[in-house]
Design a protein around this nucleic acid. Structure first.
Lengths: 230, 230, 230, 230
DNA sequence: AATGAATGAGATTTCATTCAT
DNA sequence: GATGAATGAAATCTCATTCAT
């Protein structure tokens, strides 16, 4: 049994090592440019070995997404305390993002891969086609955002006629595209800080767009980006 | 002379036929899944023949984009009259979109291909990398939107601290993503109308988000979608 | 009948025009890089038209060779007077070469194409396989040189144990290779004069090599290259 | 460790098997007619497999050349002893050639491929364009011959006004052309022995042509061809 | 007579995936 | 469990040649 435990642990460790290598490559070159061979080389394994841990390239990439997503969700949940209102939660959401991904290129991964994966696993449902989307934990983020917006609407701070699903999608859109455009650039000329400033100002605009008139707009400001590595 | 005319016309027609086939395939399967062979088969031509009309796959795809983009720009310009203010122009923009692409899958094309092309011709510049983007007429749309936002800012209807470039990008983001997600679905289960409703409500939200307080929000509403084919 | 004459003449003129274009291209880019399309474009004709005059690319190239070769043979024969001995004839041969090809890139053609053609029409026979070689007038040059050497052997100036065929081949070898190597260079950096100096010194060496001992070596010198364009 | 050794050996063997197949095809059909597909078929492998061993067709062909060339150089060097004069070395050169290539079609390879490769890797420099030529070991042979001629000139046996580079080129010319012409024939009607006799007599003639008067011509004779397979 | 259009056959190369050891 | 080797299927592109008008 001790042996079995160790085996399991070792297997899991190696799997993570592979995921890490793959993710680094995706961050550097963009999802569609990364081949199984590239990953194998970086992981110092054979291509065949990759297939012992992931039944296909699609699954491997899927797991990269999931890993990052789960890490985010876990961290965000750890920050949440009871009885926070929607705006407070949204500020926490942004803070979690900055804390976790903002300081590194990691932030790129989830969204960079989405496009690649989308064919088989759409990020979230459009037009009531929700079945497929639920595979993959990225759907969880979608749902989480949707819930936040719903809560705000219930609290009367967001307009009553908005569609939380649509808003959630848009927010993910924005994240995705900023990231994707960043990935297109050579790693050297990327500027994480600018990217984050863009993100922030767009999120703030979204918030203003769905907030009822009369709310003090200063409440809709998101935390600053201080202390981020350049 | 009559002969030359006819030849020219026929050639142009065949070229368009190819473009149409290619576009249909892109609409149905997404740009990255479509090969020259697929296009040739659909057009009932040999692969070699395609190269008589387009010097490479990239050029063919470029032309698909440009054609749709140019059609849109032309039509939009035909609607514009002097002395319109920013909000009026934006409503016209939306109307042009509906009139032209809203009634068919055509709307999908421009943005569906963007991702494929992006590597070589980024849709628009992020982080001061503007040189490359200007190739391709898709850049024109970006500039057009940017100008609209600028005008609105100058007219005092949009907040003074917004960055028109960022807003323009976001609007294109939104268009793109909705389209891309639609392309991922099997053609049968797509619902153009829902997609357009999404687009509309997002654009309205954007507008509210960048509009100064005090403006009557009813001014920010976009035209309805009546009369669209399902 | 007058009409028929004119037709024939016109046809012949056009044929020559095509040949001239093809030859120019071969001179500039080397035989294997020139396609039927290139020739058609240069001749301002359609590819299809080329096939009205030449049944295949091979035949067209063949005729380029023949044309240049025949021109040379004709000119050489016009210089010859009765009762010349072998060495005098060889000096005339060299002079004819200089006069005709030495002043222009034309010299490149015959041999540049040989390699390309060789597959189907070997330049000259090696190992008693003479049938094929006789097609194409390039064989005539081979025979001509062979005869010169034979004559010299009969006159007692060349060693009796040499094989005139082998010598003739070698001389053609040398011409060919110098030319081929020249064609590999970009046209700008070619130096016809150097090439000719090489040719000359190699021919002189060949002559010395097959001449019996005791003959005054100054007799074996070839005419100078004065007056050649750089 | 034994396993690794075996693997390496096997890999090397397979690589050689591919090279052998490719070389056989080149010998039989000429370099420009041989495609990767042909090689794959002959080697009973898939095209893709070839790319596991050679990163491109060019590299594969390069290696064929280099292998044969290196084998020759090595063997020649093994025959050389100190203090040989130029004529003795030249005789050794010829002997090495006979021993190594004379008995098989191998002799054909080096020169047959030259033409194919020439565009990218000219065999040797003409007109001061030496940079490119030095890539590839075939250049080594050129240099080797040049040195031999230089040495002979220094020893006073060759005329002082010859250009060793030009002579070296010519010798390679001769080798090449004889071989190339042989390749053009159907394998059945080739006659290696005749080809070698041609080569020999041409080399002897070259030697006589550059040797100063007064040297005993019997010294310039090359070893006989006895014991060669037909 | 001339040609625009079309094409079949083939070239090189890539890559996710399988399999024997 | 790990892997080197192998591959099928597909991608883009080229070119000599034919054919209908």
């Amino acid at each position: 049994m001790g042996i079995n435990e160790r085996r399991k642990r070792e297997r899991s460790e190696r799997k993570n090592a592979i995921l890490r290598c793959a993710r680094d490559l995706v961050v550097e070159y963009g999802a569609e440019k990364v081949s199984m061979m590239d990953i194998a080389q970086k992981a110092e394994l054979s291509k065949a070995t990759l297939y012992l841990y992931f039944s296909s390239k699609g699954v491997l990439f899927q797991e990269i997404c999931n890993e990052a997503t789960e890490r985010f969700i876990e961290y965000f949940n750890s920050l949440v305390t009871p009885n926070l209102n929607a705006l407070e939660l949204i500020r926490l959401f942004w803070k979690a993002y900055l804390d976790l991904f903002g300081r590194s290129d990691d932030m790129i991964v989830i969204f960079s891969m989405k496009q690649y994966m989308l064919a088989e696993f759409p990020f979230f449902p459009i037009n009531e086609n929700p079945e497929k989307a639920e595979s993959g934990s990225s759907f969880v983020i979608y749902t989480m955002i949707e819930k936040l917006i719903e809560q705000g609407r219930a609290e009367g701070i967001f307009e009553s006629n908005i569609n939380p699903g649509v808003i959630a999608r848009t927010i993910l859109f924005i994240f995705s595209y900023i990231v994707e455009n960043t990935v297109k650039m050579p790693k050297s000329s990327r500027n994480v800080k600018t990217m984050l400033e863009d993100l922030k100002s767009l999120l703030q605009m979204m918030l203003r767009g769905i907030t009822v008139e009369g709310v003090d707009r200063s409440q809709l400001l998101l935390p600053d980006l201080e202390n981020l590595k350049e």
